[in-house]
Nucleic acid binder design. Structure first.
Lengths: 238, 238
DNA sequence: ACCGTAGGTGTACGCCGTACACCTGTCAAG
DNA sequence: CTTGACAGGTGTACGGCGTACACCTACGGT
């Protein structure tokens, strides 16, 4: 009878289960289309049931962020601060690539969640252990900005349009329609430069991973130089 | 009679007027609370009237972004690419500080608006004119990321909570509640380091402008070093 | 046997974006 | 002067959203 089916469903739907279902749903259909109602439906439950586990949608989003941040590898004990920072950030990046909605969600929150604070705190710890002054570490954290959490924060991030429209269209090239190329000649030029690099197999513009590491290393190298110079506030390097 | 009041209102409400009113409203109450209905009310008009001037809310947002980008100073003709880039980015930053909702709005769009593309294009042009290869320029643009548009893209950007709750509370210090300081000792330490710098008059944490320029110069200096070394893809500097 | 409580339900409210049919004033062509 | 196209403002309505509030129900401890 029907009761049986209902009774079978009863794994009482913990807070953690709700958060994980929400993450899965956002992964699948994009954060735009994540609603309490859809999430409840996914869980075979009436919308208001969710409110027994999260206070409201904002808290749900915070919880989802915490789930994602928890996936980042713990810091590796490493003699070299630079390698340690680099590894951890690249791990964060891997995680965020599995959850393309996360960067925007993180940025949208007005306050960082405790999990994010914990991540930042341990990152600061790595710098301090690497011989950075508290002062320099502070500025360095600002300089890294969101890159520290593994997102390159591009203006035009294709991976961000999360809810692909269901048609699974064959990933259109998107590399500047020709009328745009005329209006923006410089952009067209550097887009072309990227395309006929060695890795132009797919011809899909440029290699995200390479660009991320390029920027990351540029920053880390600059940072290392400051540290070696014993940089301190109020006199810049030149 | 009433007709008169109505008739007096008639300045037929151009698209540009709509966009500017929308920007003003977002500046005042935050982008979260910008709705077609509120905007229409501000303009003394019924909501559906707006749709004679913008196709939908997304297009409204795109238009608002274009309004903001148009406020950025034009590129200065300058012998030194670095000074030119620096000036323009700092100008962009000034603009975005007047419109704290703009960074998030820009990031949320799936495609950059033509105005943003134009800005990026002219920035690329500055690098190219400064002797950068198309290849290096491409990577450099990625490295600068959103900083190029003047936002530091912090994880915890106080200026982003745009719709202050009306109470105009006296800007609470917010500098880590003491229980948090215990859980995140490294963060507490660098927060303290920032506070007793010379500029601790207001004691409000740290100097946004300084942090932005620190990061910007760190990047620009690293970039200059690459250019002087004649950097090219597939062999990094070390 | 009792009852408190954890957790799922049902209804309802106010807000949102916007589709669609409609009205009204202006202005050019006949 | 008439006419009719059209730009632009109106009114109604629909479906979706977050969530307040009252309710029910099953279970575990006493």
């Amino acid at each position: 009878m029907v009761e049986q089916a209902e009774t079978l469903r009863r794994k009482p739907l913990s807070r953690d289960g709700v958060l994980r279902a929400a993450v899965a749903l956002a992964d699948g259909t994009g954060i735009e289309s994540l609603s309490m109602r859809k999430l409840a439906q996914d869980l075979g439950v009436v919308p208001m049931a969710l409110y027994k586990h999260v206070a409201n949608k904002d808290e749900l989003l915070d919880g989802m962020i915490d789930v994602v941040v928890a996936e980042i590898d713990p810091p590796v004990p490493d003699a070299d601060w630079k390698a340690a920072v680099r590894k951890r950030i690249l791990s964060a990046r891997q995680v965020l690539r599995r959850h393309p909605w996360a960067p925007l969600a993180i940025e949208s929150r007005t306050m960082p969640t405790p999990a994010v604070l914990g991540y930042l705190d341990s990152m600061v710890g790595t710098f301090r252990a690497g011989g950075f002054s508290a002062d320099l570490t502070h500025h360095v954290m600002h300089a890294m900005g969101s890159r520290i959490l593994g997102f390159s924060q591009e203006l035009f991030d294709a991976s961000r349009r999360a809810g692909r429209s269901g048609t699974t269209d064959p990933e259109p090239p998107t590399a500047l329609p020709p009328e745009a190329a005329a209006r923006f000649p410089h952009l067209a030029e550097i887009a072309a430069a990227a395309s006929h690099d060695e890795a132009s197999v797919v011809g899909q513009g440029c290699d995200d991973q390479f660009e991320f590491e390029f920027a990351l290393d540029l920053l880390l190298d600059g940072i290392e130089r400051l540290r070696q110079q014993g940089w301190t506030s109020s006199h810049r390097s030149r």
